[in-house]
């Protein structure tokens, strides 16, 4: 017996949902969704749970992560209830639920909190630069170590516990009993989905979106690798330098297209942008662009005279690494992949 909580939909609205209450449960959205199948019929079920405020059911469900938002459900919804956007909001809400620190929820719900966070970090970086007298070598050096440290810290203190939390909510708590072997054998899916987002190919819209996304993920991960482990900004290897240029170019070119679409709103999926979406694409764009320019300035030997550029790059990097990656939209990349992984485990266990 579940008790209805009509206030929940108001809570969801803070995460960007709207009009989901208009749903009259015709099931059109589920029927037009190419990713929906007999085992996971969505999005209507999620719309229904949201309207009824059945938080436990939503937390236990992986459905929101299985949706890759082609927008078909929303464009064909007879009530204009926008199930696609609801699924997006549920992903944000779930992110906030998984996050033990509570920052995710705060940042999603409050634009003010987000802006404050960004400002604080920017000031911190400037203060740090000030304390270093803006010495380029030191800054480059610490910047590099910051990256490594941040990755380690975010991954172990925030992301890992959150993933375990997600696992507990969606696998353990609903009573899935799976052996260790299953966890092992299903790992393949985790990696495949993490790097390829293969599932999005099942979406009905054009495959170009998937391709863009795919090269963005590859570009982003390889740039991360290139800067952190191959020390792009300090390397002398021509190959690595060119590789870095290429990767960062990919990032800002693709994200530029993403930003353009969000401004033009010509597709259903880019019609409704939450602040977290803007932060994600804009910061990714800035990261790609600034990285590119920093390296360019190094190569042109003008970075010394243009420290501001490096500071900007560092600010964006810090904000990205400490806000967007652990608490923002970046986590979707992780949760989605794990959702596919958990889903496989659940199927295998049954």
């Amino acid at each position: 017996m579940a008790r209805i909580n009509p206030e929940f939909s108001d809570e969801l609205k803070k995460y960007g949902a709207f009009d989901a209450n208009a749903c009259y449960n015709c099931g059109n959205c589920t029927a037009v969704c190419t990713l929906s199948d007999e085992d996971n019929s969505f999005p209507r079920k999620m719309v229904r749970y949201s309207v009824l405020g059945l938080e436990g059911e939503i937390q236990a469900s992986l459905d929101p992560w299985l949706c890759y938002y082609c927008g078909e459900c929303s464009t064909t919804c007879p009530r204009e209830a926008n199930p696609g956007e609801l699924m997006m909001s549920l992903r944000r809400w779930l992110t906030a639920q998984y996050d033990w620190t509570g920052f995710s929820g705060l940042l999603y719900k409050s634009l003010g909190a987000s802006v404050t966070g960004f400002l604080v970090l920017a000031l911190a970086v400037i203060a740090f630069g000030f304390s270093m007298d803006f010495r380029m070598a030191d800054l480059l050096h610490y910047g590099h170590y910051f990256e490594m440290g941040a990755i380690a810290l975010v991954a172990s203190v925030i992301l890992l516990p959150n993933i375990i939390h997600m696992w507990y909510q969606t696998v353990r708590k609903p009573g899935t009993e799976a052996g260790l072997k299953t966890y092992f054998t299903c790992l393949r899916d985790l990696l495949v989905h993490m790097f390829t987002q293969k599932r999005a190919l099942g979406c009905d819209d054009n495959q170009f979106r998937w391709f863009e996304h795919f090269i963005l993920v590859l570009g982003y991960l390889s740039l991360l690798f290139t800067t952190v482990f191959l020390d792009w900004f300090s390397t002398q290897s021509m190959f690595i330098i060119v590789l870095g240029y290429f990767e960062s170019a990919v990032i800002f070119v693709v994200t530029f297209d993403f930003v353009r679409r969000r401004i033009q709103k010509d597709h259903e999926i880019s019609k409704h942008s939450h602040s977290s979406d803007w932060f994600f694409v804009v910061w990714l764009f800035l990261m790609g662009l600034f990285s590119f320019l920093v390296r360019l300035f190094i190569d042109l030997n003008v970075l010394q005279q243009n420290m501001w550029l490096f500071m900007l790059q560092l600010i964006v990097l810090v904000q990205w690494a400490l806000l967007i990656v652990p608490f923002g939209k970046w986590t979707h990349f992780l949760y989605r992949s794990f959702a596919m992984y958990f889903q496989e485990i659940k199927l295998a266990a049954n």
Binding site: P6, S9, Y24
Partner: peptide, 29 residues
């Protein structure tokens, strides 16, 4: 908070807009 325990809503014709409006206002069917 309105909760409508119904047997299939029959707001025929133009009355459908009331059903839509009430849903949007957050009524639960």
């Amino acid at each position: 908070h309105n909760f409508h325990f119904n047997r299939g809503i029959r707001t025929y014709g133009k009355a459908e807009v009331w059903y839509d409006e009430s849903s949007r206002l957050g009524d639960i069917y």
